[in-house]
Computed example of a mutant assay.
Amino acid sequence: MFSLKYQISNPESWHQEMAKQIPIETSGNSFLLQNSFGSGGGQFVALQPGLWIEQLDLTLKEQLSVEILPKQHNDYFSVTFWLTNAQVKQQLQERELQFKYDNVSIVLVSSTIHTAYNLPINEEIKTFMIWMSKEWMLENVVSTKNAGLRQVFERDAPIYYTESLDYKFKYLLDKTDFTHSEKLPLLINTLQLLNCFFRNLEQHSCANLASLHLHNSDLKKLMIVREYINANPLKEISLEFMSTMAGMSLSKFKRLFKEVFRTTPYKYCLKIKLEIAMELLQTNKYSVSEVGFLIGYSNLSQFSKAFKNYHGLLPSEVKS
């Protein structure tokens, strides 16, 4: 097994650290794995002073253990979009999280965080990463209107936040490809991704950004429930079934689910269904009533109301 240890900075420094510790070959703003280590690599683009993006697409022949070492100050932040079905396990203090395309898919960390994760062998690993300096983020992303959120990012406490991919992120990521995009479209799409991400972040409690006190066994049980919901998005799943699956009382399950995922089980299930509805409508293969029926609505007006409450427009407006 190979190991890589680094501190969060900018991608150029990251490439330099990788070249010292694992078998890769660097050239300009890209790197390739040596044949004995795997295939594929990564490439970064500097969009603005203090803002970079990077795409990774690689397959390892040897296991790789990665450890992010903490700095004294939060001078850099990174947002990673996991676009792979490979299962990646990350250790954060006593918590263990699992990342893959249909689970926890977006991770924000600050440079004072201490965490580690293992990358599997013989599975394609794809990520899209956004690197930001503290100065760039405070000037361009974190609004002065949200004093609470800004204070969190101005401090040096470790920040760790996870989010799930929804149709908005998937749509923007599909358009953000180094091999088919010029610098200006890349910048526009990156800013839109950050806008979506931080808009979601502003809706959640700032305390959750550094909330690391949940028992690891409880977190694993909640992840099992969420994976079941994600694997059966159109199935009607009762609260009683979910709490039994988690091995918790109903009250404890509802409380911990909301603490971890920042929404109720009912709203989470509804969110998944309404995102599927948007994706189905965008294919232009189904009528509005067919999509409503597919996600469990027998009443078209109720479906339209729920869809507009979540997406901000009527299903018929997507079709047009």
Results as ranks from 00 to 15, higher is better:
Asn309Trp: 03
Leu201Tyr: 01
Thr244Lys: 12
Lys252Pro: 01
Trp131Tyr: 15
Tyr171Val: 00
Leu56Arg: 11
Leu250Phe: 13
Ser243Tyr: 11
Glu67Arg: 09
Trp52Glu: 12
Thr162Lys: 02
Leu172Trp: 10
Phe169Asp: 08
Leu209Asp: 03
Lys126Asp: 00
Leu256Cys: 10
Lys252Met: 11
Leu149Tyr: 06
Phe128Asp: 08
Pro23His: 01
Gln34His: 08
Thr283Lys: 14
Glu54Asp: 07
Ile53Ala: 08
Glu227Ala: 14
Lys273Cys: 03
Leu165Tyr: 09
Tyr286Arg: 03
Thr59Arg: 12
Ser298Lys: 13
Met242Leu: 15
Leu281Thr: 04
Lys252Asp: 14
Gln203Thr: 06
Arg150His: 04
Ser13Pro: 00
Thr190Ile: 09
Leu201His: 01
Pro265Leu: 06
Met129Trp: 06
Glu317Trp: 14
Val45Lys: 11
Glu275Cys: 09
Ser301Val: 14
Asn122Ala: 07
Lys319Ile: 13
Ile24Tyr: 02
Tyr286Met: 10
Met245Leu: 14
Trp14Phe: 15
Phe44Trp: 13
Tyr297Ala: 06
Leu313Ile: 12
Glu154Thr: 02
Cys269Gln: 15
Ser133Leu: 10
Phe198Leu: 13
Arg155Pro: 00
Ala306Trp: 15
Asp177Cys: 07
Leu270Trp: 04
Tyr161Asp: 04
Met18Gln: 15
Leu165Pro: 06
Lys252Ile: 08
Glu94Thr: 11
Phe303Ser: 05
Asn200Tyr: 12
Leu149Lys: 01
Asn35Thr: 12
Leu313Cys: 11
Ile125Asn: 05
Asp156Thr: 03
Ile237Pro: 07
Gln192His: 12
Phe77Ser: 02
Glu279Ala: 15
Gln87Val: 14
Tyr167Asp: 09
Met137Arg: 01
Lys258Asn: 13
Pro23Glu: 00
Gln87Asn: 10
Trp136Lys: 07
Pro11Cys: 05
Asn146Met: 03
Val260Ser: 02
Tyr310Glu: 11
Leu193Trp: 14
Ile272Phe: 09
Phe197Cys: 02
Leu222Gly: 07
Lys305Arg: 15
Thr80Asp: 13
Ser105Ala: 15
Lys100Ile: 01
Arg199Asp: 13
Thr144Phe: 13
Val107Trp: 15
Gly28Ile: 02
Phe169Ala: 01
Ser65Lys: 13
Arg262Lys: 15
Leu47Ser: 07
Lys71His: 07
Ile68Pro: 04
Phe153Met: 08
Leu239Gln: 14
Leu60Met: 06
Lys258Val: 01
Ala246Arg: 11
Ser238Val: 12
Asp156Cys: 10
Phe261Pro: 06
